[in-house]
Structures are given as structure tokens and as C-alpha cells.
């Protein structure tokens, strides 16, 4: 049984992020795995000791701060979960929760983060939207969008998830680092889409990591359509970026 914890799914619910856990469940089930999804959130407790993965989606800036305040109740359990190799993934703005500090320029306050990444998050009044093509370092192109008002200041040595090849908003210069990773089990990316829905190879990669084995090809129609959607979107973005 694979246990996935959806963290604050009805609170950090922007940009279709709830679907990431659903797709993982579907992909794993299609490969014959048994999956249980539970929720952690306000008034909802999940046992992190038996969890294999904890997933945080994107939320508004105020909600990120509210979650940061609440998740401290579980910070020791989360640290223990990560230390024993549990897979933690944060998408979009929730990446801020795991930085060393979060500064809100709207009121000048700074909050202590969970410190899993050597970086600082800065909430600004300015929103930016950009569509990205990135490299995952294994020859795959990652696509998606960054829709955020949070800037991230990465310390030297903090590892990235992806390398940016193109950003429609010019926020990320070509070759710059996107996202954070610590070890091979704590991942975060600002990119939404949702990230693992837009990029089926990432869905597969995480599903294989959770199952601990190479999964057979998924022949179900939803997955085939997801692949076709990726091919089309990549084609559109490559044309817009003039990378092709």
C-alpha cells in the first residue's frame, strides 16, 4: 500500500493543484499498485509515520502564511518523515513554506520557515505570469507556468530542480535555476500546470519512485491524452520561444 498525504488540499487549491495527487493515484492504480490518499490540514490529521509522500499545492500568499503558521504543529514529524526518505513535494507558492524564512514586504514581517531549503522567500506586491520551458537534466523538457508574487533568493549551493531554457516573462534568464531539491526526496518547483499533469514523464518518475520499481507503460486513454496534450503544448511553446 502506498500512502499519499495531500496537505491542505482544499486550502492550497490554486491552478488545479488538487489533480496532481489524483493523477498519481490513477497512474499507480493503473500499474496495479494499491494507493491510499489521506488529508492533512486545518482540522484534518494524517499520520506521517506511515506516509510515503506528502504533497503541497499552490495557494494565495495569505494562505501560504496561514499554512506556515499551522504546519509548525507537524514540523518535527515532517522532519522525521524526510529523514527516513519520505517523498516531499511542493508545487507553486508552497515552495516558500520550506525555505529558511519568508518575508512579507506588504507589512515588513519576516517569518521563520521550515528550513528544508537554503533560501529565502519574499512576498512582493507585484504579480508575474510566465510560461516556461525547462530542462530536467535528463534530456526532457519540462513545461508549465509560474504565476506568483513571491521571489526566491537561493543561497549558493542550494540545488535546483530544473534549468530554464525559456521564460515568456523574462523573469528567469536562460540557464538560470528553477526550483529546489534537497537529497533525492525533497522537491519543490514554482511551476504549476499542474506540473505533473502537464509533464507525464514527471508523473511516471514520481510514481516509479513511490512504487520502488519500473512501471509498465500506461495504455489507458486518459494517459494517452495527457501525452498528446504535452506534445501539443510543447510544440506551441517551442514555436513561441523560437527554440525550435
Amino acid at each position: 500500500m502506498i500512502n499519499i498525504v495531500a496537505a491542505y488540499p482544499d486550502y492550497l487549491d490554486l491552478y488545479g493543484e488538487y489533480s496532481a495527487v489524483r493523477l498519481l493515484q490513477k497512474r499507480l492504480t493503473a500499474a496495479g499498485q494499491q494507493v491510499r490518499v489521506t488529508e492533512l490540514g486545518f482540522g484534518r490529521y494524517s499520520d506521517l509515520e506511515s506516509a510515503d509522500m506528502v504533497y503541497f499545492g499552490a495557494g494565495t500568499e495569505d494562505r501560504i502564511l496561514a499554512v506556515l503558521d499551522h504546519i509548525r504543529l507537524y514540523s518535527e514529524q515532517l522532519k522525521a518523515f524526510v529523514e527516513r526518505g519520505g517523498l516531499l513535494e511542493a508545487a507553486g507558492s508552497s515552495m516558500a513554506i520550506f525555505c529558511r524564512a519568508v518575508t512579507d514586504t506588504r507589512d515588513g514581517k519576516t517569518y521563520e520557515g521550515l528550513g528544508m531549503f537554503d533560501a529565502e522567500a519574499v512576498i512582493t506586491p507585484k504579480r508575474r505570469y510566465g510560461e516556461l520551458i525547462c530542462s530536467d537534466g535528463s534530456g526532457n523538457k519540462v513545461i508549465g507556468a509560474v504565476n506568483s508574487s513571491i521571489d526566491f533568493k537561493r543561497a549558493e549551493g542550494q540545488k535546483e530542480m530544473f534549468t530554464v531554457l525559456w521564460d515568456s516573462s523574462d523573469r528567469f534568464p536562460k540557464g538560470s535555476a528553477e526550483g529546489f531539491r534537497t537529497g533525492d526526496n525533497v522537491f519543490a518547483s514554482e511551476i504549476t500546470g499542474p506540473l505533473i499533469c502537464r509533464n507525464p514523464f514527471l508523473l511516471n518518475r514520481i510514481a516509479e519512485k513511490l512504487s520502488g520499481e519500473r512501471l509498465p507503460e500506461c495504455g489507458e486513454l486518459w494517459y494517452t491524452e495527457l501525452q498528446k496534450a504535452y506534445d501539443h503544448a510543447l510544440d506551441v511553446l517551442l514555436k513561441e520561444s523560437h527554440l525550435q
Binding site: S19, L23, W222, Y223, E225, A229, H232
Partner: peptide
Amino acid sequence: GGFAHDAAARMLVGGVQEEKLIIEP
């Protein structure tokens, strides 16, 4: 339309029956 496959994936994951769908980009 160009994003018909995105719509198809979303609907199938949402439980819309395969036999109902006609996907014609």
C-alpha cells in the same frame, strides 16, 4: 481545438465515460 487532448485527459480523470468522448482537434 488545439487543446482538445488536455480537455480529454481532464474529463477522463474526472470520470467522464470514454465511450461518450469524440476527440477531434
